[in-house]
Simulated assay, not measured.
Amino acid sequence: MATLIIENLKKSYDGKTQILKDISFTVKDGELVSILGSSGCGKTTTLRAIAGLTTKNSGKIKVNNKEISNVPVYQRNFGMVFQSYALFPHLNVFENVAFGLKMQRVSKSELKKRVDEILQITGLCELAKRYPAELSGGQQQRVSLARALVIKPKILLMDEPLSNLDAKLRVKMREEIRRLQQKFHITTLFVTHDQQECFAISDRVLLMNKGKVEQFDTPENIFNHPKNEFVARFIGYENFINCKNYSFNSKEDSNHARLLTIRPERIEIVGEPEGENIVTGKIIQSEFLGTGFCYLVKTKIGNLKVIVTNSEPIQLGNNVNLKLSADYLLPLI
């Protein structure tokens, strides 16, 4: 059982350019938290600082309220899974998985028992005598995961572990990671730039931008209640309305909002221009999505993107009435 606490973590490489700016968050016991963000935002640096692989400038790293910043990497009992699987090419699957236990000087009988058990759980028993070069990418990733889990780590750290896999295998492996994480109840920090992957497996998400935390919340709350414009744009909101120029009714308090936003699929095309939050516009672009159409509509409040499913196509140049429901209009600071 372990709780990971990060307090005011700072990192700069030249003393001037800040890579991490006062990063603070907590990963509760048994929780899977993902660090999400684009390349260069500081997510991998945060993970490496926690692991002890990168020296921080200031801040505290605590496990169960005990400061571990000065604890050597090999004594932290963290399981680590990297983007590159980092398997030993001269060792077979069994030997790769057993490596951490050998470093811990576990007895031969205990070692065999624990390795056999984790190979069974991860579906690797039949591959135990194969070498990394004889494995697929997904199989190598399972070996890397098994090696991290077999030592019974306090914390599991994963740095974009699925980025080298194809789309279908990524989905399968993320489900496997989540299953094993919940089975072993391991406190886990998972770094990714893939929003869909992140939202699918996480209890909470730490969204980073330029070395700072933009929002730390559940996937549902981030998706439905983005804190600011950056978060909204990052997770796919594309329609933004300047509150200084236009007034709309919103379910949430928008008195102090700078912008209102609404997802394309939340805008309705209606017959009559009656009721609140109705905007008239002209379709200037149309894209077939398979399950429906995506329209770009020119209106007095700017161009709005609208996604409509299970409907007949609307011709370019046609005028349409758009309903921006107060339930889905979100104010942004």
Rank of each mutant, 00 (worst) to 15 (best):
R130N: 11
C125I: 13
K66D: 13
R266E: 08
G137I: 07
Q18N: 15
L145Q: 01
I19L: 08
E67D: 15
T55V: 09
A257Q: 04
L289P: 04
R130K: 09
A133K: 11
F234V: 05
G275A: 14
G42E: 02
K28I: 03
R147D: 00
A232S: 13
V150S: 09
G37R: 07
S69E: 13
I68Y: 08
N310F: 11
I284L: 06
S84A: 07
Q140V: 11
F230A: 15
E229T: 14
S58T: 12
V306C: 10
N64R: 13
R76E: 07
R204I: 12
P153A: 04
K108Y: 02
N319E: 15
L36D: 08
K43R: 08
S38V: 14
A148C: 07
I177R: 07
K244D: 10
P132K: 05
L189Q: 10
T188I: 00
N245M: 03
S254E: 05
I121R: 03
S69R: 10
E252A: 14
Q182P: 02
L207D: 01
E238N: 08
E176Y: 00
K129P: 03
S286D: 02
N221F: 01
F94I: 08
L330S: 01
T46S: 10
G137L: 12
P89N: 12
N245L: 04
Q182L: 02
H256G: 09
Q285K: 14
E274C: 10
R266C: 04
K16D: 03
E197V: 10
E67L: 14
F88A: 02
V231C: 08
H90M: 06
S247E: 01
P226E: 06
G137W: 08
K244P: 04
L47T: 13
T192F: 04
V191F: 03
V81H: 12
Q141A: 01
P331I: 11
Q195M: 06
F25D: 10
T17N: 05
I186M: 05
S311Y: 11
K43Q: 13
Y74V: 07
L330K: 11
D203G: 04
T26K: 05
C125Q: 15
G79V: 15
F288C: 03
L101D: 06
H193V: 12
I267V: 06
T187V: 04
T26D: 14
L32N: 03
E214W: 14
I5W: 05
E238L: 06
N57R: 07
Q104G: 04
S109E: 12
N96Y: 09
L296S: 10
V231I: 07
N164I: 03
Y74F: 14
T44V: 13
I333L: 14
L87E: 08
S163E: 07
S286K: 14
T54D: 09
N65H: 06
S286F: 01
P331Y: 04
V143G: 03
M1W: 09
G37W: 06
P72A: 05
K16Q: 07
V143D: 00
